[in-house]
Amino acid sequence: MGTTERVLALLGLLQQRRVWTGPELAGRLGVTTRTVRRDVERLRTLGYPVHAGNGVGGGYQLGAGQALPPLLLDDEEAIATAVALLAGAGTGDAALRALTKLDRVLPTRLRSEVRALAASVESFGGGRPSVDSEVLMTLARACRDEVEAEFTYRGDVRRVEPYRLVASDRRWYLLAYDLGRDDWRTFRLDRMSEVSARTWRFRPRPAPDAAAYVQESVASRVYRHQARFEVRAPAETVRAQIPASAAVVRATTPGACEVISGADNLDFILLHIVLLGHAFTVAEPPELRERCEVLARRLRDAGVTSS
């Protein structure tokens, strides 16, 4: 745990209970009482009224009846902190609780920016991808304000109606309605340049589930071949074996699931499913069933000892 994260954790603990002893705080934070004293001084330097009692019965507490001052972060630091928390929000409640605390102590001028980001972001896979904060905030504001966005993508200028930002286990994506293609499209943020929000407002269209749409696009639609398998294993087990950006796993029964994936080579998909170690059936495409026969013969021949 870094210093900044630890100091924020200390502030959270002090907000939860009226009085904490030094050893109690040290135990919760996994540090020494000396480190706790230093972190308390850091909070005081930031303007938080932390009082310390003397003697065996003493302890640390926030000043009674006093409002907490704003957290002293500049714009880039606040946005970077929010980005890190939002990218990890899919992993559990901790990131969401931290984001809520950040919202309470941010200066008023930054709250709307962070809230715009929070309302425009979804995730799958629980990763923490790197991201250009300026691009992210430009698109988040465009999603919030329902204004068109424009950017260069793989050499082409694209004009879109931005809907949601989605964080995967490896990258950030924008789900938007592409006005030039007249359809929903997924865009990788790291492939964008010259990103800007336009002044032209739009009326939101009926939209697909952002996280599910982007995950399926990343896992299958971008490839030459798409495949669907019925796997006889619990969805939770299979999800733990496959990166979220490599396949969509949907539970069908408590002991079985559907796996949707894609690749430019059918044998590549098939071998990856085989290596999961579960019984499975090919649902589609039909030609993949033929590849099963071909690979089965090849493996049988490879295991035959020549005399």
Results as ranks from 00 to 15, higher is better:
93 D>E: 14
80 A>Y: 03
83 V>H: 04
93 D>H: 07
133 S>G: 05
65 G>Y: 11
79 I>F: 10
62 L>R: 11
95 A>D: 12
48 Y>N: 11
41 E>K: 06
90 G>R: 01
44 R>G: 06
141 R>L: 03
127 G>D: 04
124 F>H: 10
58 G>I: 07
114 V>E: 09
139 L>V: 08
92 G>D: 03
76 E>G: 08
75 D>E: 14
51 H>F: 09
49 P>N: 07
119 A>C: 03
107 P>S: 12
70 P>S: 13
123 S>G: 13
51 H>A: 02
59 G>H: 10
105 V>Y: 04
118 A>I: 00
58 G>W: 12
61 Q>H: 15
101 K>G: 13
93 D>V: 13
127 G>P: 07
82 A>Q: 01
63 G>S: 07
100 T>V: 02
106 L>C: 05
54 N>Q: 14
127 G>S: 14
128 R>F: 12
108 T>E: 15
42 R>P: 03
124 F>I: 02
76 E>Y: 10
136 L>K: 01
96 L>F: 06
43 L>H: 05
113 E>V: 04
69 P>F: 08
81 T>C: 08
82 A>K: 01
88 G>N: 08
104 R>C: 07
53 G>A: 14
80 A>L: 13
140 A>L: 00
94 A>Q: 12
99 L>A: 13
77 E>I: 00
140 A>H: 00
73 L>C: 11
71 L>Y: 01
88 G>M: 02
115 R>D: 03
51 H>W: 11
54 N>D: 11
51 H>D: 06
118 A>T: 03
106 L>Y: 03
110 L>I: 02
51 H>G: 02
130 S>Y: 03
116 A>D: 15
97 R>G: 07
94 A>I: 03
64 A>V: 15
99 L>N: 02
92 G>W: 04
57 G>R: 13
139 L>F: 00
57 G>H: 15
112 S>W: 06
128 R>I: 10
78 A>D: 09
104 R>K: 08
105 V>A: 10
75 D>I: 08
52 A>K: 10
116 A>E: 08
110 L>F: 15
124 F>E: 03
125 G>R: 00
131 V>T: 09
106 L>F: 06
78 A>G: 05
118 A>N: 09
136 L>A: 10
131 V>A: 12
125 G>M: 02
52 A>W: 05
82 A>F: 06
44 R>P: 08
41 E>L: 07
102 L>G: 03
50 V>L: 11
129 P>L: 10
125 G>W: 08
89 A>P: 05
140 A>T: 00
83 V>N: 01
49 P>I: 04
74 D>T: 15
114 V>D: 02
138 T>E: 11
116 A>L: 01
81 T>F: 02
96 L>P: 00
121 V>T: 13
81 T>A: 12
59 G>P: 08
103 D>L: 12
56 V>S: 15
103 D>P: 00
51 H>R: 12
79 I>E: 10
110 L>D: 07
137 M>H: 09
130 S>E: 13
41 E>S: 06
83 V>Y: 00
66 Q>N: 10
129 P>A: 11
50 V>Q: 07
81 T>L: 15
91 T>H: 13
41 E>C: 01
80 A>Q: 11
119 A>F: 04
116 A>S: 14
118 A>M: 09
46 L>H: 12
133 S>K: 05
71 L>R: 05
117 L>N: 06
102 L>I: 06
52 A>N: 09
97 R>I: 03
60 Y>N: 10
110 L>K: 08
57 G>A: 14
44 R>N: 09
111 R>S: 05
131 V>E: 01
98 A>Y: 00
130 S>C: 05
